[in-house]
Nucleic acid binder design. Structure first.
Lengths: 200, 200
DNA sequence: GTCTATACAAAGATAGAC
DNA sequence: GTCTATCTTTGTATAGAC
C-alpha cells in the first residue's frame, strides 16, 4: 500500500513556507506592516493561493503565533523535565533562543515584536501574545523557585518579580540590539543575570 | 501695536493637536497601524487639513519624533547640568518619564514603540529612532562614569555595557507592562538597578 | 492547489473652492 | 486653514476556471 505521509495535523509544504516567511516578516517589520503581497512576491505564488491556505490575515497570524508558542512551550517542558539538571543550566537553556535571535541583525522574539503593536492587533492575536508573556514569566518563576529550594539561587526579590525582570531584560535587549546593532548586549545581560542569582 | 504671538518656530494650535494625537497613536498602536483617517475622525477635521499641516505621513512622523527627542534631550541636559546633584539622583530623574508611561496602561516610550517596527519605517524615521537609542545610552554612560569618579557607584561591568543594560531593562519593562498590565515592574526594575550600583 | 479576474475598502495624497 | 471632491495605490478578500 502507498505510504501515507499525512500526519494528523500535517500542513502542506506551501503552507509551511508561508508560515516561515510570515513569521520572519512579523519579526522584522511587524504584523501591521506586512501584507499577502509581500509573501506572494517572495514565494512566487498569488495572493489568492495564500488565502487558500490561510483564509484571512488574522488566521495566518494566529497560526504563526501558535506554532511559535507551541514550539517554545515544548522546549520549556523539555528543559524543566530534566530533573538532574541544575537550575542555572535550565535558565541557560532558556536564553538560547534569545541568543540565536541576537545573531541575526533584524530578528527579535516574535511575541516581543508583536508586543510593540499589541493595541493594533486583532483580539485573537492580542490574547495569544499576552498569554506567551504570562506563560514565560510563570515558567521562569518556577525555575527560580526550584533554584532557591535547591540552594542554587539567592534572590534579591520574590521569584515572580525576578522572573519579570529577567524576561523584560531579555526582550529589551533584543529591541536595543536591533535598533543599534549591538549584538553583544544579549550575552552581557545573560552573564549579569547569572552572576546576580548565584548565592554569595 | 498688536502683540505678535508668533514665536520663531511657532506651530498652530491644530498642528500641535495633530502632533499630540499622532504621538499617542504611535505609542499605543505603532506607526504602521495609524492613519490620517484616525486623526481626522478624532479631531473632527478632514484628512486634507492634516496634509496642509504635515505634507506626508513621513513628515508627521519626523515631527513627532523630533519633538519627543528634543524634549527628552533638553531634560537630559537639565539633569546633567545640576552639578551638585548626586549621580544617583540624576539616574533617578532619568527614570521618571518611564515611570510616567508605566502609569498609563497602554503607553510605552515613543522610540521603544517605533523600535519594534524599525525595519518597516521610512529611513528618515529609522535614523532618528536609532539616534535616540544611542544618545540615551551615551548619556547614561556619562552619568555612570561620573558616579564612579565620585565614588557613588560601583559597576560590575564597564559603563557603556551597564548603560545598555539599564536602558534595555527600562524599555523591556515597558513592553512587558503593556502586554501583561503589570504596572509595578518599572518600579521594581528601577529599585534593583539602584541597589546594584551602590558601592558595597 | 494554484491561477485569473475582480470586488471593495482603506490609505496616502492632490486640486481647487471657500 | 479647512473644506469637497477626486485620484491612485495598496490591502484584504472572494468567485470560479483549470
Amino acid at each position: 500500500m502507498p505510504k501515507t505521509k499525512t500526519a494528523p495535523n500535517a500542513r502542506s509544504d506551501t503552507a509551511v513556507r508561508i508560515l516561515d516567511l510570515a513569521e520572519r516578516l512579523i519579526q522584522t517589520r511587524g504584523y501591521s506592516a506586512f501584507s499577502y503581497q509581500d509573501i506572494s512576491e517572495a514565494l512566487g505564488i498569488t495572493k489568492a493561493s495564500i488565502h487558500y491556505h490561510f483564509e484571512s490575515k488574522t488566521d495566518l497570524g494566529i497560526a504563526v503565533i501558535e506554532r511559535y508558542t507551541e514550539g517554545f512551550g515544548k522546549e520549556l517542558q523539555r528543559i524543566a523535565a530534566n530533573e538532574n539538571a541544575s537550575s542555572l543550566a535550565m535558565l541557560d537553556h532558556y536564553t538560547k533562543p534569545y541568543l540565536q535571535f541576537a545573531e541575526s541583525p533584524d530578528r527579535v522574539c516574535l511575541c516581543g515584536a508583536l508586543a510593540g503593536e499589541v493595541m493594533a492587533l486583532p483580539p485573537q492575536l492580542r490574547e495569544r501574545v499576552e498569554r506567551f508573556f504570562t506563560d514565560h514569566q510563570a515558567w521562569l518563576t518556577s525555575i527560580l523557585k526550584r533554584g532557591v529550594a535547591r540552594g542554587e539561587f539567592e534572590l534579591a526579590a520574590p521569584a515572580p518579580k525576578t522572573a519579570r525582570a529577567i524576561f523584560g531584560a531579555l526582550q529589551g535587549a533584543l529591541l536595543v540590539k536591533r535598533a543599534t546593532g549591538d549584538v553583544s548586549q544579549l550575552r552581557d545581560v545573560v552573564a549579569v543575570m547569572k552572576a546576580q542569582l548565584s548565592p554569595a
